[in-house]
Each structure stands twice: as structure tokens, then as C-alpha cells.
């Protein structure tokens, strides 16, 4: 009964909602600070279009930012992992840049790109770039040496080696990087929207605070969590499909 046991994952959430309801019933906080679950549920209907539009804006930014990071980091990571000279050239820089939290770049991003989509996407790009790059490099390094010998003995061209051996060997690690990248990008987008953008879930939440619509803050937080969960699950499903050939992954999913 794998389906039923998966539902166990909902239990903590149900418990949290029950505790929340209890806190409301006991009036631990004034209702303007802690709205009832029913009121928040109602706000999904009332503010439905607003929530949808802002969620769409946030998701689109993450898709673009992570997509760009993927397009840069995966080829770069394959090459850096493959060629030690490139690794020596880039290693220190990568380690230095990846230690900078993307949030700390918000002021610079605003100075350079103003307010709007551009600074947000740049920040998402930066927070997605490093996990993707490092995991891709790591994936290439982990390749079994015999496989490269087979390729060399067959006198395979470098292009064939990169496409048919290095890339697939690194795929499981690339997917790990993608999960981290989407997670990091999602955190970054919400933060960036609170400061540098005038749309998106982050902006919506901040705006709701200023207008004392606490139920909308709660609704926004729930949407952020739900989208995060769905995105992560989708990537891990995609990974299980694409990397079907990997024993460990097969066992993990069933």
C-alpha cells in the first residue's frame, strides 16, 4: 500500500492546522494577528485572482532564472569536470563566489538593474548557478574510470565522449543540483520580491502586511510552501524517470 503510506506525510501538516485552530479558539492572539484557518481558506477564494497572478509572476521568474543558470552551469560544469586545466583555472573563483549569499547582492542588483524583473532574475540566476555548477562538476568527477578507458580504446571523439558518456554519467548529480537550484531560487525570489520588485508572492505578502490583511499573508505563505513542495516532487519524479538505469534511484522510488 505505497499510496496510503505516502499520505502519512500529510499528518504533520494536519496536526499543525489543528494546533492553529486550537490557538485561535483559545484566543491566544487577537484575530487580526492570527486569523482562523477558515478565514484563510476563504481568502483563497476572495483573493484568488491576486494570488494566482502573483504566484504566476514568481514562478515565471524562477523558471527563467533557473533555466538560464542551467543553460550556463551544466555545459560549464561538464567541461570543468572533464578538463583539469579548466578546474585549476576556476576552482578558487567558484568557491569564493558561491560563499556569497544571493540576498546580500540585492542592493547591488537594485543599483545596477533598478526595480523589476531584471534584478530578481539575476539574483535567482546567481543562487541557482552554484549548486548546479558544483553538482555537475562533482557528477563528472565521479565517473567510473573504466568507462573512459573504453571510450579511449574505441577512439571515440571528444564530442561523443561528452554527449554519450560524461553527460549521462553526471545526470543524477545534475538533478541533485537542479533540486537545490530550484529550492534556492524559490527562496531568493520571495526575498527579492519583498525588496526589489512590485509583483510576486513576496511583494503580495509584504503588501498584505502593510494593509493589515493577515489572512492574505498566511495564504501567501501556504502557496509558497505548496509550490516549493510540488516543484521538488516534480524534479525528483523526473529524475527517477530520466535516470531509470540507476539501480539506487529505482529502489528509492518504489
Amino acid at each position: 500500500m505505497p499510496r496510503l503510506s505516502r499520505l502519512a506525510g500529510l499528518l504533520p501538516i494536519v496536526a499543525l492546522v489543528a494546533a492553529w485552530q486550537l490557538a485561535v479558539s483559545l484566543q491566544l492572539y487577537p484575530p487580526v494577528l492570527l486569523p482562523a484557518p477558515a478565514k484563510v481558506a476563504d481568502s483563497f477564494v476572495r483573493w484568488g485572482p491576486t494570488i494566482l497572478a502573483n504566484a504566476g509572476a514568481s514562478v515565471l521568474r524562477v523558471v527563467i532564472g533557473v533555466g538560464l543558470a542551467f543553460a550556463v552551469a551544466v555545459p560549464a560544469g561538464l567541461l570543468i569536470g572533464r578538463y583539469p586545466a579548466l578546474d585549476r583555472l576556476t576552482d578558487w573563483s567558484i568557491q569564493a563566489f558561491r560563499s556569497v549569499p544571493p540576498i546580500s547582492l540585492i542592493p547591488l542588483a537594485m543599483l545596477f538593474f533598478g526595480i523589476g524583473d531584471t534584478p530578481a532574475i539575476v539574483l535567482i540566476f546567481l543562487s541557482a548557478l552554484w549548486p548546479l555548477l558544483l553538482n555537475t562538476i562533482f557528477g563528472v568527477r565521479g565517473i567510473e574510470r573504466t568507462l573512459l578507458k573504453v571510450a579511449r580504446a574505441a577512439r571515440a571523439s571528444e564530442a561523443l565522449v561528452l554527449r554519450d558518456i560524461i553527460l549521462p554519467a553526471a545526470l543524477p548529480a545534475i538533478f541533485t543540483g537542479l533540486r537545490l537550484a530550484i529550492g534556492g531560487g524559490w527562496l531568493t525570489v520571495v526575498t527579492a520580491e519583498m525588496i526589489a520588485v512590485k509583483s510576486g508572492l513576496g511583494y503580495m505578502i509584504l503588501n498584505a502586511q502593510m494593509t493589515f490583511r493577515t489572512e492574505l499573508i498566511f495564504a501567501g505563505i501556504i502557496v509558497i510552501g505548496a509550490i516549493g513542495l510540488v516543484a521538488d516532487q516534480s524534479v525528483s519524479r523526473l529524475r527517477a524517470r530520466v535516470c531509470r538505469w540507476q539501480e539506487g534511484l529505482l529502489a528509492e522510488r518504489e
Partner: peptide, 23 residues
Amino acid sequence: FQDHGLFPWMTVRANVEFNMKAR
């Protein structure tokens, strides 16, 4: 090779064709 050197992401057919593909 002793540790067979098969590409885990390729089917048996793709593995067997690899050396020819390289050529």
C-alpha cells in the same frame, strides 16, 4: 575489462553498438 566497462545508462544494444558508433 574485468569490471566489464558497460555504460549503465545504455541498453545492451547501445552498449554493443558503442565502439562502432565511435568509428
